[in-house]
């Protein structure tokens, strides 16, 4: 069934059309003026201004490896993160400590630890699953590179982002 849409009855002022145009132009010039004098808050000028100091506590940026107080890479190459990683961005090649080594008790360390930042989805499951609290999601978000190879973070790069985690962190202590 056809529906008849009733047309509103316009008075002479509305039909004259020009007053409506002028009021429309008044609205746009108001926007223009407010923008010109910086009264309207708009787009952040990205490379000059950044959100860095307003980043929320729980922000998940680039994953990174950390060292402990003694300078040892905290990762023990258990490969749980590699296993849990949904896009399979992590590649670990474990190595064994030599028998007389200071950390021989730890048994294993990552010889290579690569995270492909093209694949990474910043889900944070690696951080969650790590039994040694060796991998953390930092707040770095501007990950750029000129080639695909540039976008793979190797162990050095990951440690550079991660830095040192001070103090004894025994993950399960809080849960006991």
């Amino acid at each position: 069934m056809a529906i008849t849409v009733s047309r509103p009855k316009l008075n002479w002022r509305e039909r004259a059309y020009l007053p409506a145009i002028l009021s429309g132009m008044a609205i746009t010039i108001k926007h223009f003026r407010n923008m010109l004098f910086g009264r309207t808050k708009v787009t952040m000028q990205y490379p000059e201004e950044k959100w860095d100091n307003q980043m929320p506590e729980h922000y998940r940026g680039a994953p990174a490896l950390v060292r402990d107080d003694t300078g040892r890479v905290r990762c023990v190459a258990c490969q749980l993160c590699e296993f849990i990683c949904p896009p399979r961005a992590i590649k670990i090649i474990p190595g064994e400590f030599a028998a007389g080594d200071r950390f021989a008790k730890v048994e294993k360390f990552p010889q290579e630890f690569d995270i492909d930042m093209i694949r990474c989805i910043y889900c944070g499951l690696c951080e969650e699953v790590c039994p040694e609290q060796a991998i953390y999601l930092r707040k770095d978000y501007a990950i750029t590179g000129f080639t695909r190879a540039d976008m793979v973070h190797n162990k050095e790069k990951l440690l550079e982002i991660g830095g040192v985690m001070h103090g004894v962190v025994l993950k399960w202590n809080e849960k006991k």
Partner: peptide
Amino acid sequence: RISALIQDRL
């Protein structure tokens, strides 16, 4: 520029 300012852009 003017169109941008009118539309609250830069």
